[in-house]
């Protein structure tokens, strides 16, 4: 069973992790930060929740029923692999865990598995 800070610490322990953030998707707020960066965290958090929202909107329109439930989202880019995983919470929805990985030192499948395990221990739903 994890607390919010533990969750980011564990995300940073994923091999190859460069950055980790826990984001409140509704307000776009950075709830917890890993990786020792502290400037423009709020901006990153807001931008990442917009990224996820845009993906949800686009995929919802593209799906037969018009609804979508994203389990995780992986974007590989020049500056690394970006992994986002929304977690449903009972109070306010969703809390998103984000981690950026060094493409040279990371294993995407392992990272995705670890992220799923972290979210399973952070929320019980």
């Amino acid at each position: 069973m994890l607390g919010i800070e533990d969750c980011v610490t564990e995300a940073m322990a994923i091999p190859g992790a460069l950055d980790a953030l826990l984001i409140d998707q509704t307000s776009g707020m950075a709830v917890a930060v890993g990786g020792g960066r502290d400037e423009d965290v709020d901006e990153s958090a807001a931008a990442l929740s917009e990224t996820l929202r845009a993906a949800m909107d686009g995929l919802a329109l593209n799906s037969p029923g018009g609804t979508i439930r994203i389990n995780d989202m992986i974007v590989t880019a020049d500056n690394g692999h970006h992994l986002l995983r929304p977690m449903e919470t009972v109070f306010d929805g969703p809390l998103v865990i984000y981690v950026r990985l060094d493409p040279e030192r990371s294993n995407l499948a392992l990272a995705r598995h670890r992220l799923r395990s972290i979210s399973g221990r952070l929320v019980t739903t």
Partner: peptide, 8 residues
């Protein structure tokens, strides 16, 4: 969980 309580 502790995380849920903290987030709430």
């Amino acid at each position: 969980t502790r995380g849920e309580l903290e987030f709430c």
